[in-house]
């Protein structure tokens, strides 16, 4: 089932007198329970497309339809609410909050998403997610004591703890070595299937494409 549709999305940047079109009318649809990988050379517009789809920057033109609503017509607060409740994010770096323990990172996400869980329920949920990403033993650890792979696992746990509909992952393995990259990708794929999430992934690492259900190649701001 299609849950996310990108229709004729364009993005232009103006720098002084120079106007550059980064996205030149992209059309794309994402299906539930599928990992869709966007690939392409540097500057092809894949990361720009992901951040526009995720509501992190506006499109210059076009529509982004999610659950029957057009994200491009929403105000900043409405987009923030969608980001908090319905989307999950994994970036190249884990971007964990340095002064929160692993457990607190996840608790914060549950609060932000507005889940009306009691503390006990939150803890139960956190335990379940941490066991999914195999990090239950580091619940009380601060990010400074975690390895790169562990941080990225926690970032993934944070991205899915509030049961988002769509997971956006922008180069989630770029800062990891080959073994850890495969572990993280296997985890993203497994969670997409288990939790029936729609995942949009940007990567330039061809080895990671093995974990995607669909591969979309981008070139010069268009789907090739």
């Amino acid at each position: 089932m299609t849950v996310f549709t990108i229709e004729d999305v364009r993005k232009t940047f103006t720098n002084g007198e120079v106007t550059e079109e980064i996205l030149k009318g992209v059309n794309l649809s994402l299906k539930e329970g599928e990992v869709t990988a966007l690939v392409g050379a540097s500057g092809s517009g894949k990361s720009t497309l992901l951040t526009i789809a995720a509501g992190l920057q506006p499109a210059s033109d076009g529509q982004i339809l999610f659950e029957g609503t057009n994200l491009t017509e929403m105000n900043a607060e409405q987009v923030r609410k969608i980001r908090a409740n319905k989307f999950g994010f994994v970036f190249q770096f884990a971007h964990l909050v340095p002064f929160l323990t692993v457990e607190e990172q996840l608790m914060l996400m549950l609060d932000v998403a507005g889940t009306k869980m009691k503390k006990r329920e939150q803890k139960k949920e956190i335990d379940e997610i941490l066991s999914l990403v195999d990090m239950g033993h580091r619940k009380k650890a601060y990010p400074s004591s975690l390895s790169g792979g562990e941080k990225q696992r926690i970032a993934i746990a944070r991205a899915i703890i509030h049961k988002p509909k769509v997971l956006f992952a922008d180069e989630p393995t770029a800062s990891l070595d080959s073994k850890r990259s495969k572990d993280v990708m296997a985890l993203i794929r497994e969670l997409t299937k288990t939790l029936n999430i729609t995942t949009l992934l940007v990567t330039h690492d061809e080895e990671m494409l093995a974990y995607a259900d669909r591969i979309i190649k981008m070139s010069d701001g268009q789907v090739a």
Binding site: L56, R80, K81, R83, A84, N85, F89, H95, V97, P98, L108, M109, V112, A113, R158
Partner: peptide
């Protein structure tokens, strides 16, 4: 700044 940006990205008001 970076931290605030990430918190905003995940939906913190």
């Amino acid at each position: 700044i970076g931290l605030y940006g990430i918190l905003k990205a995940i939906g913190v008001k």
